[in-house]
């Protein structure tokens, strides 16, 4: 009887823990390659209404990249502490501005940054310093970073979303992307959106 009570207590404690904490995402050995599907990545929903609006997200808890309302999502994995991400920030902002300046592309392409190992304070510091105009989400425990194969930063993952709900990675590369205009043309060509 005593053992049964202990078991029940532990089972209840386990349930409470499970309810409190999202199930862990699986760690991947390598970053996704072109043609792959994205691993499961549950990202915290941005707090600002305009960022939710930009991504077309209506959920309140977390979201996934395929849920973004777009045809192409450019994901930058960065860190506030990575000098090479700092150096790349103006080029990514320039890419965003180019997309937003085009009424057609603006509707079809979205950009999001994931701060590997960065808290909300740290991604906000990065956002403020570089006047980043697109949403940045924190990944304080490296869970998303683990799920996408511990990529080096900055790492750009570009995902093509199809109308039928399927998706695939069309670009996956560590390091800077060079000239924003050339990178955008490359993505339009790879995604067959041109």
């Amino acid at each position: 009887m005593k053992q049964r009570s202990l078991f029940l207590f532990l089972a209840l404690a386990a349930s409470a823990l499970l309810l409190q904490k999202p199930l862990p995402m699986h760690a991947a050995p390598n970053p996704p390659s072109e043609g792959d599907s994205l691993p499961e990545m549950r990202l915290p929903v941005p707090q600002k209404a305009e960022e939710l609006d930009y991504l077309g997200i209506s959920r309140k808890d977390f979201f996934t990249i395929p849920e973004v309302k777009a045809e192409l999502v450019i994901v930058e994995v960065f860190s506030m502490y990575c000098p090479h991400c700092q150096k790349e920030a103006p080029a990514v902002n320039e890419l965003y501005k180019m997309i937003e300046a085009d009424q057609e592309l603006k509707r079809r392409i979205k950009i999001i940054g994931i701060g590997a190992g960065n808290s909300t304070y740290e991604v906000e510091t990065f956002k403020k310093h570089y006047s980043v105009p697109f949403p940045l989400v924190p990944d304080p425990d490296y869970k998303t970073h683990d799920a996408i194969g511990k990529v080096r930063t900055p790492h750009f993952l570009v995902v093509r979303l199809q109308a039928d709900g399927s998706h695939k990675v069309i670009y996956s590369q560590a390091g800077g992307f060079g000239e924003p205009k050339e990178f955008l043309n490359l993505l339009l060509s790879k995604s067959k959106m041109k």
């Binding site: 760690a27 860190s79 502490y81 990575c82 000098p83 090479h84 991400c85 590997a116 190992g117 425990d141 490296y142 869970k143 970073h145 683990d146 511990k150 990529v151 080096r152 930063t153 900055p154 790492h155 560590a174 390091g175």
Partner: peptide
Amino acid sequence: STFAGNTSEG
């Protein structure tokens, strides 16, 4: 996750 190394590509 206990990842604590550097991530920077450079």
